[in-house]
């Protein structure tokens, strides 16, 4: 595992076949197999929080082709395991982000895309903007406003590596929680205004 850490197995049938053989012969643990499988099926949910969506759409367009990483934006949160926060999260949207996040099955991962999703970016002192990491736990941060599609691809690649390196998915299967984080509750109840 460790020897191949640095590589990315995109479209590499040989590596995939060897790996499948190893699993079948019992050389690899099931957790490793889960890590490996999860890292190549990161499906982001179709939740668009802001204008970084234009570059997110470009990432899954023909030029940058995000699907080559085994990643496909999907409609229903129930069938996805990755959320990409595409830019600013406003107070009104924070509630939707949290609800979507809670609907996704574990193990799930989050990428914060763009300056607004890190520290507010241009809107750092805006009265209507919340930091997404206060709402959901984030795995990878992408700087830029908006980041290039390559950056998004980079983030997916790095997240795949992180999953394999830290056995995030496998650990979850074994123990039921992510090794690197406690179950996160938002700092404030972002939906309080809505519930009334």
């Amino acid at each position: 595992m460790a020897a191949e850490e640095g590589k990315v197995y995109v479209g590499n049938v040989d590596v995939a076949a060897r790996r499948a053989r190893d699993i079948l012969l019992g050389k690899l643990k099931l957790e490793d197999a889960v890590d490996w499988a999860t890292s190549f099926s990161l499906w982001p949910v179709h939740l668009t929080t802001s204008c970084c969506s234009t570059e997110f759409a470009a990432t899954f367009g023909p030029r940058f082709d995000g699907e080559q990483f085994g990643s496909l934006p999907w409609v229903s949160p129930r069938q996805t395991n990755l959320i990409v926060i595409e830019g600013t999260v406003t107070r009104k949207m924070a509630c939707a982000v949290r609800i979507t996040w809670e609907q996704m099955p574990s193990p799930k991962f989050a990428i914060a895309m763009g300056a607004c999703a890190l520290d507010g970016g241009l809107f750092y002192n805006s009265y209507n903007v919340v930091r997404p990491w206060e709402v959901i736990p984030i795995d990878i941060y992408i700087p830029g406003c908006p980041p290039r599609p390559e950056s998004v691809a980079r983030a997916i690649v790095e997240l795949q590596r992180k999953i394999r390196r830290k056995h995030l998915a496998g650990e979850w299967v074994r123990t039921g929680w992510r090794p690197d984080r406690e179950p996160v509750k938002p700092k404030e109840d972002v939906c309080s205004w809505w519930r009334g």
Partner: peptide, 21 residues
């Protein structure tokens, strides 16, 4: 556009101050 608790603060009036760093 705003959520109701924010709308009560009348954000575009001049006495609602937003500070620059």
């Amino acid at each position: 556009l705003l959520i109701p608790p924010l709308a009560e603060k009348r954000p575009l009036r001049k006495d609602f101050v937003v500070r620059e760093e």
